[in-house]
Design a protein around this nucleic acid. Structure first.
Length: 234
DNA sequence: TCAAGGATCCGCT
DNA sequence: GCGGATCCTTGAA
């Protein structure tokens, strides 16, 4: 279905779980001095409300998660495991803490810039203290489709960090933004599954199929996922 | 398989 | 205001 003629921002009124399906296939765009990077968003995870025990909002409003309580369409970038930045798109009206974690992007343009940026970040991280010998084996090259196939990798490949938190991702003039898919683009085959790495939330929340991906993309972070057609009807 | 890495938050003083 | 457990992951072993 073409979205031409509609204001993309109006989609932010959709409930988070519907918005996740809608934003699959959208493009993430970064333009800076290095050039232009563009990719297709192929995997998202929903974090919805204070009751969601997997969400950063599960302890209520704090300094870190404050942006999640604000208006939708803005960026929330946080640091995980002390080393990886992760990009979220804030959803739901002001007052309701919710967001969509961007878990994977399929490169469309500027993949060389993405590879370089990712390599830079990996090198900065693996820098050993003096006296420790560096690895002797050259690293296997990463396939282009896998350059941003993970939430930390999305931020590495697009040079995103926490300073971006609060930026309006729906501002068409912004250096970092998201835009609807172009006409004629390969259609999205929505598949779903439980969110990754949230076992601590307990089964009631960890088992919810709030992970959404394009099953036709080679850039999804990891299987398994289930298509709507295969899902048993309840 | 597993360590790296630091911000964040809880639960106490 | 402090100590300690935890974390929406990645890459090298």
């Amino acid at each position: 279905v073409s979205q031409a003629g509609t204001d993309p921002r109006s989609l932010l009124e959709l409930p988070t779980l519907e918005l996740a399906r809608t934003l699959l296939g959208w493009r993430m765009v970064r333009e800076d001095a290095a050039g232009r990077r563009e990719g297709r968003i192929v995997e998202l995870e929903a974090y919805l409300g204070e009751a969601d025990q997997a969400s950063h909002a599960r302890f209520g409003r704090t300094g870190r998660n404050d942006i999640m309580y604000g208006p939708p369409g803005r960026a929330y970038v946080y640091l995980v495991y002390g080393m990886h930045d992760c990009l979220n798109i804030v959803t739901e009206p002001t007052g309701v803490p919710a967001a969509l974690l961007v878990r994977a992007v399929e490169p469309l343009e500027g993949v060389d810039l993405m590879s370089d940026a990712r390599a830079r970040r990996a090198a900065a991280r693996s820098r050993r203290p003096l006296g420790v010998k560096p690895a002797t084996t050259a690293r296997k090259p990463v396939p282009a489709t896998r350059v941003a196939a993970g939430p930390g990798l999305v931020c590495a490949a697009f040079d995103l960090d926490r300073s971006l938190t609060g930026r309006d991702l729906f501002d068409g003039t912004s250096a970092v933004r998201i835009e609807p898919a172009r006409d004629g683009h390969r259609p999205v085959v929505v598949v779903t599954g439980p969110r990754v790495g949230v076992g601590y939330a307990g089964p009631e929340w960890a088992d919810r199929p709030w992970r959404f991906a394009d099953g036709g993309s080679p850039s999804v972070s990891r299987p398994p996922l289930v298509t709507d057609a295969d899902r048993p009807r309840t």
